[in-house]
């Protein structure tokens, strides 16, 4: 299975090829899945080093599950998102008592935004969103990240989180309401005063 022909191959078929020992499938799956796993873990944890550990562990579990993977039982990406969420929940619980960062501790965005450097403004916006996301309860954060940053549909999120559609909608709605409240009054700080939208 050549690497340039794997783009259209479903994850499940690549995983089966991996289990048969095909190295091209291994590379293709790694290139395809690790960025998604890393992005999700990073947004749930807000810590790059920890997110990398989680991404590696989640992928390791996938490799080990490959031989016994049952076709059609679960989508590979859904399964992976679930594993990542569980691993992140464990880590968040472990560090909950020593978590000290708060939304107010975000970098001094006002000064840098006033400076007008586009890269810094974008970085500050990302930091502000990350800090606000960290204030959400775990399940709300997972649902909001999957919907608005990973681009999953509500039905896919329901499958990942093993809950009903209404519960997903409720989690996202409550999460966004909390985020809006946390970010209230920071529009100017984040450099949106001159933006049209």
């Amino acid at each position: 299975m050549a690497s340039d022909t794997t783009d259209e191959v479903p994850d499940e078929d690549l995983l089966a090829a991996y289990a048969r020992g095909e190295t091209a499938a291994t590379r293709a799956l790694t290139l395809r899945l690790v960025p998604r796993v890393m992005g999700y873990a990073s947004r749930l944890l807000g810590d790059r080093a920890e997110a990398e550990d989680v991404a590696q562990e989640a992928m390791l579990r996938l490799w080990r599950a490959a031989a016994k993977w049952r076709a059609g039982e679960a989508q590979v990406s859904t399964w992976l998102y679930r594993v990542v969420a569980n691993l992140c929940t464990d880590r968040l619980r472990a560090r909950q008592r020593r978590r000290t960062e708060a939304l107010e501790a975000a970098p001094e965005v006002a000064d840098r935004a006033a400076g007008g450097d586009a890269g810094l403004i974008e970085a500050d916006r990302a930091a502000a969103l990350e800090a606000a996301l960290r204030e959400l309860p775990d399940r709300q954060r997972q649902a909001v990240v999957l919907r608005h940053l990973e681009g999953l549909s509500n039905a896919e999120i329901a499958e990942v989180m093993e809950i009903g559609l209404e519960a997903v909608e409720s989690l996202i709605c409550r999460g966004k309401r909390t985020l809006v409240a946390l970010l209230a009054g920071r529009r100017d700080d984040l450099g949106y005063e001159d933006d049209e939208g």
Binding site: V180, L183, R186, L190, Y192, G197
Partner: peptide, 8 residues
Amino acid sequence: EQKTLDNL
């Protein structure tokens, strides 16, 4: 605020 969140 909702617009700010969407922009973020």
